[in-house]
Simulated scan of single mutants.
Amino acid sequence: MTVFLVLIVIILFAIAIWQMSKIYKLSKPVNKDSSFQHEVANDKDNRINAKLMLMFLIFMYFLMGYCFWYYSRFYLPEASSDHGGLYDSLFFITLAVIMFVQLVTQVLIHWFSYKYHGKKGRRALFYADNDKLEFIWTIIPVIVLSGLIIYGLFTWSDIMNFEKDEDALVVELYAQRFNWKARYAGEDRILGNANVRFIEGVNTVGVDASDDDGMDDVITQELHLPVGKQVVFKLRSQDVLHSAYMPHFRAQMNVVPGMITQFSFTPTVTTKEIRETDYIKDKMRRIQKIRTEKSKELVASGQAQLDDYENFDYYLLCNKICGQSHYNMQMKIVVETQEEYEEWIATQKTFKQTIAQQ
């Protein structure tokens, strides 16, 4: 694949040099005795290129429509958080505006290229200055972009400027290359102080052992969230810049070394519920088909067979290229009922119990 990409780059570079040489030739003055005057496009050439412009326009929109249809199976399902609808509305409105603008501009560009293609004796109309046109194509983008920016700011404010509920679940997401850990606040709903300088032995996230608020904290390798309950995330990084990315919840926040960032959302769809949706069932059937075919290839080559991919799960990912194993930096998220969450958290050891067993 690398060799193939290198060949493509070399070919494209050669084409670019060839085109630049043609531009250089066109920029040179034409003498009457020069043979170059025979290379100037005639009416036939212009007609052919004008029709090609229309054909390219049709091809471009056919390809765009095909891509929208074919790759629609990779779209995310409906958001699994309460703020996800706001995020999706902003995204689709922005996409609709962009698609409308490019539809109009591309049609005009290609149609005018066809309609006003070069003909012998035709002279192009030249405007040295037109205040009316300049005002129109300046003020319209200003109004549209200002509207999108203001709408985006209000949406961002609604999502980020949250009020913490009294019974909100407080969870710290601790990032380290190439791993995630979750630290839950105990019954006091307060996370204990932590610092990378305290990392030693079983104290993998640097909880301050002298802080009583941290004694009932719970540190896990799997993130469990109760449905319908606000979750406030505190984020820390041990080494480099990471980004906590939960696509199905429309949530992402940078994790910055030396500081604590935060965001909050309320899960609305449990893991069990999303597994029963038609979108996820179809997605899992496609994945299982690919894995089955891959397993047959491995068996035929004498390698071990892949395990079945049983069910869909939410995941916390890193959305910053943080190093060589960045692709594998993920943590399973389980959204469940309050009762199921309480049963699970009751089985986890507190920080006090962990250091006591050291």
Score class of each variant (00 low, 15 high):
Phe68Asn: 13
Trp69Pro: 01
Glu39Asn: 15
Asn49Leu: 12
Arg47Gln: 10
Cys67Leu: 14
Lys44Phe: 10
Lys51Ile: 08
Ile58Trp: 05
Ile58Glu: 02
Gly65Leu: 02
Met53Arg: 07
Met53Ser: 11
Tyr61Ser: 00
Gly65Phe: 00
Tyr66Lys: 09
Leu52Arg: 08
Ile58Leu: 08
Tyr70Asn: 09
Trp69Asp: 05
Lys51His: 08
Ala50Ser: 05
Gly65Cys: 01
Phe36Trp: 11
Leu54Asn: 00
Asp43Asn: 07
Leu54Arg: 01
Met64Val: 10
Gln37Arg: 15
Ser35Arg: 13
Met55Leu: 10
Phe36Thr: 07
Met53His: 09
Cys67Ser: 15
Leu52Met: 12
Cys67Glu: 15
Tyr70Glu: 09
Glu39Lys: 15
Met55Phe: 08
Asn46Leu: 06
Met53Trp: 08
Asn42Gln: 04
Ala50Arg: 00
Phe62Glu: 03
Tyr71Ala: 13
Leu54Gly: 00
Glu39Leu: 14
Met64Ser: 07
Gln37Pro: 08
Phe68His: 12
Lys51Tyr: 10
Met60Ile: 02
Tyr70Ile: 07
Ile58Ser: 03
Glu39Met: 15
Trp69Val: 04
Phe68Lys: 12
Asn42Tyr: 01
Met53Pro: 02
Leu54Ile: 05
Asp45Tyr: 09
Tyr70Trp: 12
His38Gly: 12
Arg47Trp: 08
Met55Arg: 07
Ser35Cys: 11
Tyr71Ile: 12
Phe36Val: 09
Met60Val: 02
His38Phe: 12
Ala41Pro: 06
Phe56Ala: 07
Ala41Ser: 08
Met55Val: 07
Lys51Glu: 04
Ala50Phe: 02
Ala41Tyr: 06
Ile58Met: 06
Leu52Lys: 11
Phe56Val: 07
Ala50Trp: 00
Leu54Tyr: 02
Ile48Tyr: 03
Gly65Arg: 01
Tyr71His: 14
Ile48Gln: 03
Asp45Gln: 09
Met60Phe: 05
Asp43Trp: 04
Tyr66Val: 10
Tyr71Asn: 13
Met64Leu: 11
Asn49His: 14
Glu39Ser: 14
Trp69Thr: 04
Asn49Ser: 15
Gln37Val: 14
Leu54Met: 05
Leu52Cys: 11
Ile48Arg: 04
Lys44Ser: 10
Leu63Phe: 14
Asp43Ser: 04
Trp69Glu: 05
